[in-house]
Design a binder for these strands. Structure first.
Length: 834
RNA sequence: GCCGGAGUGGCGGAAUGGCAUACGCAAUUGAUUCAAAAUCAAUCGCCCCUAGCGGGCAUGUGGGUUCGACUCCCACCUCCGGCACCA
């Protein structure tokens, strides 16, 4: 015997799959397209190629590949592509440090990923491979940008952004760690700059409503997105500053507390602040305060524990419900980015307003009766955020606030003082980056086309795409995009008037690239369009999407937004990109997240080298439920390797033996082994269907192999018995194939001949799933007292009689009276005694 | 604070309201071997005793529903994840 040699087996099958292009599928209309099969689009989130693949990649692709194989063997035409999310910061930061062009480091990493995916035996359709950093791809990213621009869904606006004063650069949000610059540790400041946005807020309502269109998404992911979108119902009410003839709309979820508004607060970034204070005694103090707030880190400002600060403006507004003049303040607890950047403060019924009122000695006026002891801070039981009868609210007094809510809104709306409103926490997606390694934004600025000093934004015509990323020398940002230094590239002609114009030097957020890659796979080499409509309609939506839960909000929501926008542009027929989502949990080591600095990383390549890809893949599926995390254990890997070796040895042992007719293997341990095999088929199938419970699926296959070991020596004496062992081993190979495809294919070929992936997924024989006798559990007062073999179809009376006959049971019935008998046929008898 | 998820042997984890601890790891023992590794076989929750085909206790804590609860309900504790001055 030669022993289990994964290197040899794995190389053999990988070669065959590559040569025969086993996993490639054709599009409708292409030769080889199989229109007779239903389609299944199985997709794992594409990797970000930086360095080498890590163990999280292994788990993601092992899980996804198992699903792809399972679908194929259920008769689906499975499309299972792969690509690389190749633009992004790490490659660029590496370039700044080492001078190596981002493209080179990225290509090197991609080569490593590609090689390892092949060595893992993942069943990828390589004909559809793509990299988001190639002009062939980002040309279409730019094309989509232009379509969004035409629709008004991409726009340019001034916005506060994160700025590092030491590096003199704008930072991406991901580069701000605890309010400091990721690279130099300097506290980050906010600045207002012109930026590009996508109008995702237009889709807030549909992004919420269309959760109903999804088949199966983890509940917590839906909840996280729901919270992120943060829909609130309330009213927009206008407060007027008569002295300056200025209207200040506010959003409130509590219009029922309007009569209790005793002051009014603007965010420090509020655009009207300057007009309110110009030339007033408050001017200087307000300016100082605003500047001080601007220097605060975002984290400090968000600290709820901090005492409330602010400055009076010396101005007032009129409360539209009662005509009261209430003083205006500026305070940092009001955020410009939520609502209108201004609030009416109702200290009696809002904890934050209450604290501010205390700090500034402002009146607190109760308008709802009630006390919440958990929140109340004073003798009167204020603040009180709950519900109750109204008071001090004019004609609404005595009514319950919930009841009066709608009436107040209607009353305000009647004469234009306010209206019902919905507000979202979601903000528009800021997509421009002052960065080199991304897709250039395809517009130019033309002074000649513009007017009054403001240049016109002129989109680059489709036939001039892609706007290629130029080669540059210095990648370090200098407060503007590094692309600005490529002067020859920046200087261009206006496509509209031909005059001298300048290119946009910002690039797009990499989340833009990954918001549509799953469509490009479907028609990856189309040079005339991002995709062919019919082809995309055939394959979409993705039937099963697999990835890390860390993308629960951003990537998944952006891709949903893109899909809806593209559907509105009449480029797609689906409203939702991912019908089913599976989020895999994170693998830790020694209970901690893996990181290079902790030195607790696991290199998949090392384990594949030592134990083979089948062992590594099966182990990550076996270590626990895949949606949960798990701690990596070298001993656990060895355990899985032992199991695969046992299957291999079983195969080698039984292969040369002359086997008889399986139908003759009717009695004794042969039948028991066959029954175990069918039990395993049933169990693994159900574990797949019930949310990919791969740990128990692998365990069931282990049980089958263990059972075969227990009985094999007895069965070898008889050809029918040998046939039963062969069947058990081949079934184990078939069931383990989605996890350990090389070994599964090899054992199957040796014992059954042919290719296991072309064989339909086995179906358990109901005849062998049931047996003539069952183990009857006998309880007395719910406690197990005996187990008795009984005929499976025995009537209740017989089971009761059997139970009462048992010596062990009688001992517990002694001197007692049976007051109740519970019989579950085929399972259990419970005798209740007193 | 709000919203999710989870608490089961020495460890990772199994259990449509019906045999708690499948499967794996670790540990112990035996076979094989000159020996070891590998392999094969077996034992393996805790406690008690009269040592058996024995009894009791165990699924975070306390209640409840039920003939019967890891599973369902109520209250609480702990841990993990997300959001967080969102008006």
């Amino acid at each position: 015997m030669s022993g289990y040699d994964p290197k040899e087996i794995e190389a053999k099958w990988q070669r065959l799959w590559a040569e025969e292009k086993t996993w490639e599928v054709a599009n409708p209309g292409q030769p080889g397209f199989d229109g007779g099969k239903p389609k299944s689009y199985v997709l794992e989130m594409l990797p970000y190629p930086s360095g080498e693949p890590h163990v999280g990649h292994l788990k993601c692709y092992a899980v996804g590949d198992a699903i792809a194989h399972f679908h194929r063997r259920h008769g689906f035409e499975v499309i299972h592509p792969m690509g690389y999310d190749a633009f992004g910061l790490p490659a660029e930061n590496n370039a700044i440090k080492t001078g190596e062009p981002p493209r080179e480091a990225t290509e090197r990493s991609i080569a490593s990923f590609r090689k390892q995916f092949r060595e893992w035996g993942i069943s990828i359709d390589w004909s559809r491979e793509l990299g988001t950093h190639t002009p062939e791809y980002y040309r279409w990213t730019q094309w989509i940008f232009l379509r969004l621009f035409e629709k008004g869904l991409a726009y340019r606006d001034e916005a506060p952004v994160q700025w590092c004063p030491k590096d003199a650069t704008v930072l991406a949000n991901e580069q701000v760690v605890d309010g400091r610059c990721e690279r130099c540790g300097t506290p980050v400041e906010q600045r207002r700059l012109e930026q590009w946005f996508f109008k995702i807020t237009d889709y807030a309502e549909r992004l919420l409503a269309d959760f109903d269109l999804l088949e199966s998404w983890p509940e917590h992911v839906v909840t996280m997105q729901r919270n992120w979108i943060g829909r609130s119902e309330g009213a927009e009410v206008t407060f007027r500053c008569a002295e300056l003839d200025l209207d200040f709309p506010v959003f409130t979820t509590r219009p029922d507390t309007l009569f209790g508004a005793s002051f009014f607060v603007l965010a420090p970034e509020h655009p009207e602040l300057e007009r309110l204070i110009a030339g007033t005694p408050a001017e200087r103090e307000v300016r100082e305060y605003v500047n001080q707030v601007a220097r605060e880190s975002v984290e400090d400002r968000g600290d709820e524990e901090r005492p409330k600060t602010g400055v009076p403006l010396g101005r007032s507004v009129v409360n539209p419900v009662n005509g009261e003049r209430i003083p205006m303040f500026v305070a940092d607890y009001v955020l410009m980015e939520y609502g209108t950047g201004a609030i009416m403060a109702v200290p009696a019924h809002d904890a934050r307003d209450y604290e501010f009122a205390r700090a500034f000695d402002l009146p607190v006026k109760r308008v709802i009766e009630g006390v919440d002891p958990d929140v109340a801070r004073d003798d009167e039981g204020l603040p009180y955020p709950g519900d109750g009868p109204m008071t001090g609210s004019g004609e609404f007094d005595g009514k319950h606030n919930r009841e009066a809510y709608g009436e107040i809104v209607a009353w305000l709306a009647g004469d234009g003082r306010g209206e019902a409103a919905v507000n979202y926490r979601l903000r528009d997606w800021l997509v421009s980056r002052q960065r080199y390694w991304g897709a250039p934004i395809p517009v130019v600025y033309c002074d000649a086309c513009g007017d009054a000093g403001a240049p016109a934004i002129v989109p680059v015509p489709d036939d001039q795409l892609p706007v290629e990323l130029p080669e540059i020398e210095d990648y370090a940002p200098q407060g503007r995009s590094p692309l600005a230094a490529a002067e020859d590239w920046v200087a261009t002609e206006c496509p509209r008037c031909g005059a001298a114009a300048r290119r946009e030097t910002d690039t797009m957020d990499t989340f833009v690239d990954s918001s549509w890659y799953f469509i490009r796979y479907l028609d990856a080499h189309n040079e005339a369009a991002p995709w062919d409509r019919d082809t995309a309609d055939h394959w979409l939506p993705v039937d099963q999407y697999i990835g890390g839960v860390e993308h629960a909000i951003l990537h998944l929501m952006y891709a949903r937004f893109f899909t809806k926008a593209l559907a509105d542009l009449d480029l797609l027929s689906v409203e939702e990109p991912f019908a089913n989502l599976f989020t895999q949990g994170m693998i830790t080591r020694d209970g901690a997240k893996m990181s290079k600095s902790k030195g607790n990383t696991v290199s998949p390549a090392e384990y594949v080298e030592r134990y083979g890809a089948d062992t590594a893949r099966t182990y990550v599926c076996f270590m626990g439920p895949p949606e949960r995390g798990g701690d990596w254990s070298d001993e656990g890997v060895e355990g899985v390797n032992r199991f695969l070796s046992r299957l291999w040895r079983l195969c080698e042992e039984v292969e040369p033996l002359p086997a008889g007719d399986l139908d003759q293997a009717a009695g004794g341990s042969a039948r028991e082994l066959l029954a175990k095999a069918h039990w395993a088929i049933d169990k693994v199938s159900r574990d797949f269907e019930r949310g990919f419970q791969f740990n128990t699926a692998v365990a069931a296959t282990m049980e089958l192999v263990n059972e075969a070991y227990r009985v094999k020596d007895d069965l070898y004496t008889d050809p029918a018995g040998v046939a039963a062992v062969r069947f058990a081993a081949a079934t184990a190979a078939s069931l383990i194939f989605p996890f350990a495809p090389h070994l599964g294919a090899e054992v199957w070929e040796r014992l059954r001949g042919g290719r296991v992936w072309e064989d339909r997924w086995p179906v358990a024989d109901p005849e062998l799933l049931s047996s003539d006798t069952v183990t009857l559990v006998v309880q007395v007062n719910g406690k197990l007292r005996d187990r008795i073999e009984a005929a499976a179809d025995a009537p209740e009376a017989e089971l009761l009689a059997l139970a009462r006959e048992s010596e062990k049971v009688r001992r517990h019935l002694d001197g007692k009276q049976v007051v109740k008998e519970v019989v579950v046929p085929g399972k259990l008898v419970n005798l209740v005694v007193r």
